[in-house]
Amino acid sequence: MRYLKILLVTAPLWCLWSCFSFSYNDDDNNRLSSRFQAVVMERTAFENAVSIMPAMPVQKAGKIYVYGNYLFVNDVNKGFHIYNYSNPSSPQPLGFLAAPGSTDMAIRDNIFFINQATDLVTLAYNTDSNTITITKRNRNVFPAMRSPDEFDGQVTDSQVIVDWQPL
Rank of each mutant, 00 (worst) to 15 (best):
R2C: 05
Y3D: 12
K5I: 09
K5Q: 06
I6T: 08
L7N: 05
L7A: 11
P12N: 08
W14Y: 14
C15E: 08
L16T: 13
W17K: 09
S18Y: 05
S18F: 06
S18A: 12
S18D: 06
C19S: 12
F20Q: 07
S21D: 15
F22Y: 15
S23I: 12
S23M: 09
D28H: 13
D28G: 07
N29P: 00
R31E: 08
Q37M: 10
Q37T: 15
Q37F: 05
A38N: 03
A38C: 03
V39L: 07
V40S: 04
E42G: 15
E42V: 06
R43E: 02
A45S: 13
N48S: 09
A49P: 01
S51C: 07
I52H: 00
M53E: 15
V58Q: 05
Q59C: 08
A61Q: 15
A61N: 11
Y65V: 04
Y65T: 11
Y65H: 12
V66M: 07
N69V: 00
Y70A: 08
F72A: 05
V73L: 11
D75R: 00
D75L: 00
D75S: 03
V76Q: 06
G79M: 03
F80C: 05
Y83L: 03
N84Q: 07
N84L: 09
N87L: 13
Q92S: 10
P93V: 03
